[in-house]
Amino acid sequence: MKNELGENDLELLSACLDGVCEDPAALRARLNAEPELALRLRQLQAVRARLAAIPAPNPPADFAARVTRRAFARKLPVPGATFWMYALPAAVAVLLVVAVATHRPPKQEAAAPDPDAWRIALNAVAESPDAETMAEWIDEEPIQDETSPGDLVGTLADLSAGEAGGLEGADIGGPESSASLIDMMDQMNDVDAAVLAMRLKSGA
């Protein structure tokens, strides 16, 4: 009997309890015809009466005074004009500090290695005297310890042994061979090429 009522009936009785029943006449008719509904309404009224009898804690006598003291002890928000009087200079000061703290003098850029250095070096090789000219020089003035084109071949072969490969035995002895030398150096990595160029320069 106690759990037969549906949600709608529960809401109907609850609304009736609060005096907001939409159709009081219809509800009265149902209450007369359905004793369970009438009992449920009496029980809900009893629940309400018992709720009203529950003791409630009252605030202490000085509650309002204490709250007021605490509320007004805090700084009140600064009104508009005064606020900007302080906020604007403060903001500028903060910006200045940040700017100074983050400022770094511009670095002088380190000279990047010239990727065409080895080409320049090879051009120098290409423009180097041919065998006949060198022979004349030898006649004129014997050169001791000078790097000859043959030595250059050996140097190139040493340098290229690891990565470039295929330079060993290549005919790069004369200026006319500089084009094929460029082709081969294209296969080398940049570092090896730069080293080679420097060695060529120092040997020239």
Binding site: K2, E7, L10, E11, S14, A15, L39, A46, V47
Partner: peptide, 23 residues
């Protein structure tokens, strides 16, 4: 609000009924 209120009241009614505190 109506439906929550109805359920809350019903829950209290059931509880008091279980304790024989209601007619």
């Amino acid at each position: 609000v109506r439906s929550r209120l109805a359920r809350a009241r019903e829950a209290l009614r059931v509880r008091l009924t279980e304790q024989d505190m209601l007619p």
